[in-house]
Structure formats: C-alpha cells, structure tokens
Amino acid sequence: MFFAILQRLGQMLFVMFGISALVFLIFFATPGSDPAARLAGRNASQETVEAIRKEFGFDRPLPVQYVVMMKRLFVTQDLTSFVNRGYRIVPAVVAAAPVTISLVAGAAILWIVGGIFVGVIAALTRDTLIDRGLMALALIGVSMPVYWLGEVMNLISQSRFHDTWMFSWVPALGYKPLMEDPVGWFKTLVIPWFTLAALYIGIYGRVLRANLVEAYQEDFIRTARAKGLSPARVMVRHALRTSLIPFVTMFGLDFGVLVGGAALLTEVVFGLNGVGRLTYQALLNLDLPMILGTVMYASFFVVVANALVDVVYVLIDPRVRGN
C-alpha cells in the first residue's frame, strides 16, 4: 500500500516535470524562436536584444535557466513577471484561482446533473422521438464552439433581451468574489456556467446513453428484472450504478483540465479574470515565468484529478480493490 502511494507520487512528479519541461522547451528551444528578441519587441535594436538577453539570463545554458526558474517558483516563491518586474507570479495565480474554481465547479454540477438527466431519459425512451430530440440537442451542444455560444449568450442577456423580465437581472460582465457579494457572485456566474456546461452536458449525455444502452444488454440487468425490481430501481441501482464508473474517469480529467485553465475561452468571453485568462495573457506577452507558474498550477490539478479518479475508482468499483 505504502509502496503504491509512493509510486503514485513519483508518477505525479514525473508528469509535472514532463509538462513544465515541455513548455520550457517550446519557448526556448523552438527553432527560430528567440525569447530575448520577442521580449524586446518587433523593431528593437541589436543592442537592446543583447541587453535583455543578459538581464533575463537567457545567455545561460537551458538546464540552468530551468532549475533557477523552478527554484524561484517553488522554493523562494519570489519569481516575478518578465513584463512587469514587480508582479509576483505565485500571488497572481493564487488570486486568479478562485474565479476559475467558481466557474468550473458550478458548471460541473450543472453538467453532471444535466448529463445524467439527458443520458437516463434518452436511454429509457430509446428510439422514440424524445430520445432522438435529446440526442440531437446533445450533438448540437457538442458541435458549438464554447466562445461563440458565450457571445450569443452575451448578445441575448446583455443586449437584445436585457431589458425584458428574463434577463434584466443579469449584471455586467465581470466577477464578484463569493465572500464579499454572494448574490452578485451567483448572478455573474449563472450564464457562464450554462455556457461552459452545454458542451459537457452534450458529451456526458451521449456517453451515458451509450453506456446505459450497453448495460441493458447485460445479463445482470436481466437478473435484476427477473428479481421483480421496479424499472426505476433497475435503472438507478443496477444500470446507472455500473455505467457511472467510466463516467468518473471522464469527469476527473475534464474537471482537472478546466480548473487548470482550459476554461480560458469562457473566461475571455465573460471577462472573468481566472487562471485561463492569466495564462493566455502571459502567453501573448511571452511572459515565461508567469506561463511556467500557470502551467505548473494546471498540471498540478490535472495530476491531482487523475489521482483522485483512482481513489474514487477504488471506492465505487469493488473489482479494482485488492482481494
């Protein structure tokens, strides 16, 4: 058991190292890319570029640069932005995290409930009009770019129908901290939640329906029906319960990636200053310390989510528990 945990931790560290090294290499070792020239701007003189190269330490060997940066990020925690030298990385990420977590957590609740609802109803009404309608809607959800859906939502709720009873409650774009203004927090996030959840309701609903339809071919469902159980009980306790196992893996990965910053398109469209937007702005400025900070943060969540999935797996699937 102890060895297994140790191995797991080692794996997590390996993946985090791999991701940070990969990002580092993309920015420093891509042929033709010179970080000093990029920082200096488009028409900077050769001297300026050289000065920047020296100042930021780009003339040192790559491994040294990597180690120094990681040390300042994790040990001394005084790593600052390239673009704004007084701007510290760690506090910036910490300040952005609650926004992203608020956005993703709310959307996650919506998409779990919505996905299960769509999947179960469609599986129960298989091959009827209801099933087809739900699956068509789910497919549309999967086919919509999230940022575009966000713009359409903005158009409806902020402009075209803002003065009607339906959307007059929608506040201006932006984020309100939960602790200071819970109602405002909720109001600003409702539309982003639905926007982000639409895609995942589509994906999860489709996957769950397929899993349930498959489960209904299984012998144990026939056994459950032969036991004289009600259809609801057969669905919930037997078919849904076993179909949820692959669902958990998907959810862990998606949730980890989104909290790690993959919700950036939603954040950009709704003006939420979360980690995704922070990452995106850092990327645009080639602000490498900030990028590394947010990437480490992202990979941390991905890795933790993966580990959590394994734990949940042990809880919900007795087959993976050791005998």
């Binding site: 012998d219 144990f220 026939r222 056994t223 032969a226 036991k227 159980l229």
Partner: peptide, 22 residues
C-alpha cells in the same frame, strides 16, 4: 413484477455475468 422473483425465480446461464458486479 410481483410474480417475477417471488413466485417464479430465474437462474441464468452464465453466473459470471448474471450478478451486478458492484
């Protein structure tokens, strides 16, 4: 349903798949 399981019991062919695994 009141008859199934109470008055008529079913024994399936393959015991490996006839029980819900969880």
């Amino acid at each position: 349903r009141a008859i199934r399981g109470r008055e008529i019991g079913l024994i399936s062919q393959d015991p490996m798949t006839a029980l819900t695994p969880v």
